[in-house]
Design a binder for these strands. Structure first.
Lengths: 231, 231
DNA sequence: CGATTACTTGAATAGTTTCAAATCCGGTGG
DNA sequence: CCACCGGATTTGAAACTATTCAAGTAATCG
C-alpha cells in the first residue's frame, strides 16, 4: 500500500524531521489496511514490529487467566503502539484490534535502536509517550480506587470525547463504533451497569445513545459529574 | 554522608560499569539518610533530582483532588525512583515517604542526559524499569477490574513477600512496617475490609498479623487463593 | 502511665453485580 | 422489499460484596 507522506508529515512526532530523514524512515516502513474487527497483533505473539496508527481506531485488550477481558487503552491516529521491544519485551503484552477500519505504518523492531540513534527526538517522544501512558495508568488506578462507577464512566466518556470526538450538530460524536461492553471493559464494570448509567444520562440530557454509538450532548454537565459537583 | 561504593557496585544496574565510570557517577551524587515517616520529595514539587534507594523502603503516594490517598508503588533497595524528568515532567507526580529508615543516592536531574550518553546501559535500564512499571500498573488495573478484594489483597501481599520478604522461623516476614491502611491504599479498599480479610487468613493459618507487622506463614495457600483455586 | 495510633469487629446500608427476560436494531438472504 | 436472525441494549428483581458507621480493644511512645 502506498504511504501518504503528507499525512505522516503532519504528525507532531515527525514535524521537525528533515525530508531526507523522513524518507529514510518511510523507506523501511510498510503500510497496512486493517479491516474492522481484525487484529494488528495478538497478546503473546513475538514482537517483530512496531507501529504507527495513521487512520482509524484500535482497542488494545488483555485477557486474564480466567478469560475476562479488559481494554487497556484506545489507540488514536498519530499514536505509536506495539513498541514492546523498546521496553525490553519480546512479545506483545496485549492484542490490538481495529475498532474501525484502520491504516497502520509498520517497522521491523530491529530498526528501533537505529532510528533512535539517528533521531534523538524520536527517542524523547517515545519516552514521553511511555511516561504519559504510565500517568494514564496511574490515573485509572486512582479512579478505580477512589471513585464509584458512574464517575469513572463519566471520565472515560470525557476522555473519548477529547481524543476521538467530532463536532456535530447537537453535540460531540464519539467517532468510532463503541459498545456498552467496551465502555464496561474500560472502566472495570459490567455492560449492564454502563447501560443503566447511560440511560440515566440520556434522560438527564447529557448524552444520546444508540447501537455502538455515543453522542455527548452536554460536555459541561458530564464534566461536572465527573468531578463530583453533581450526583 | 559517605557513600558505600561496595553497596552500589553490587546493584544489577551498575555491575557491568567500569570502576572509573562508577566513580565519576558517584562523584556527582550525594547520599541522604531519610528517617522513617519523612518525605524524600513531595507531589507537585519541581523535579530537581532523581534518586536511587540504597537501604530501607519507600511508599510513593498520590493524593486525589478530593483528598483521598493511594499508594502508587513501593520502592525497594536498588530501585531508581523520582526520575520524572526522564519522562519529560517538570514536577514529581507523587510523594515518596520513608516507610522505614532509608538511605538514598541523589543526583541533579540535569545530569540525566549526560549520564545516559556515557552509559547507554543506564538508559536501557531506565527504559526497562519504566516498562516494568507500566506493566505493573496494567496488572493492577486488570486485578481491580476483574477480581474481588480478597484476591487483590492476596496478590498485593504476595508481591510484598517476593520483593520485601525476609525468611524467618515460621514464615516470610514483610521487612518493613506496613499498616492495614497501607494495604488498603495499595489495593483500592478500606482498612476495615483488609483487617477482616487478614483476620480470616490468620484463623486459616495463612498469615500472622500484628501492629504494622505481617508474617506470611503459608505462601502456597495464599498463592492458591490469589489464583482463584480456593475461596 | 496517659495519650495516641493501630487494629478488630458487629450491624446497617449502599452500590454493583448477577440472573433473567424482553426488546431493539441492522443487516442478510429469500 | 420484507421477514428473520443474531448481537446489542434495556430493565427489573434478587443476591452479594464491600463500605460506612460505631464502638471497643490492643499496642506503642513519650
Amino acid at each position: 500500500m502506498k504511504i501518504d507522506r503528507a499525512v505522516v508529515k503532519s504528525l507532531p512526532l515527525f514535524d521537525r524531521m528533515s525530508d531526507e530523514e523522513l524518507d529514510r524512515l518511510l523507506s523501511y516502513a510498510t503500510s497496512r489496511r486493517v479491516p474492522q474487527g481484525e487484529a494488528v497483533f495478538e497478546q503473546g505473539q513475538p514482537a517483530i514490529s512496531f507501529f504507527l496508527l495513521l487512520h482509524g481506531r484500535l482497542k488494545v485488550t488483555q485477557v486474564t487467566e480466567d478469560g475476562q477481558q479488559i481494554i487497556v487503552r484506545v489507540v488514536h491516529p498519530g499514536d505509536l503502539f506495539g513498541f514492546a521491544k523498546a521496553l525490553q519485551r519480546t512479545d506483545y503484552p496485549g492484542t490490538a484490534i481495529a475498532a474501525a477500519e484502520s491504516v497502520t505504518l509498520c517497522w521491523p523492531t530491529d530498526l528501533w535502536p537505529n532510528f533512535v540513534e539517528h533521531n534523538p527526538r524520536l527517542a524523547v517522544s517515545a519516552m514521553q509517550t511511555i511516561g504519559q501512558r504510565l500517568e494514564e495508568a496511574h490515573t485509572r488506578i486512582r479512579e478505580m480506587s477512589t471513585q464509584e462507577v458512574e464517575r469513572r464512566v463519566a471520565h472515560a466518556v470525557l476522555r473519548l470525547a477529547r481524543k476521538a470526538g467530532r463536532k456535530e450538530a447537537g453535540g460531540i460524536r464519539i467517532d468510532f463504533p463503541i459498545s456498552r461492553q467496551d465502555i464496561a471493559e474500560m472502566t472495570g464494570t459490567t455492560l449492564h451497569t454502563v447501560s443503566r448509567i447511560l440511560s440515566a444520562w440520556e434522560s438527564r440530557g447529557f448524552v444520546e445513545g444508540g447501537r455502538q454509538k455515543l453522542l455527548v450532548t452536554d460536555l459541561e454537565g458530564l464534566a461536572e459529574l465527573a468531578h463530583g459537583a453533581r450526583d
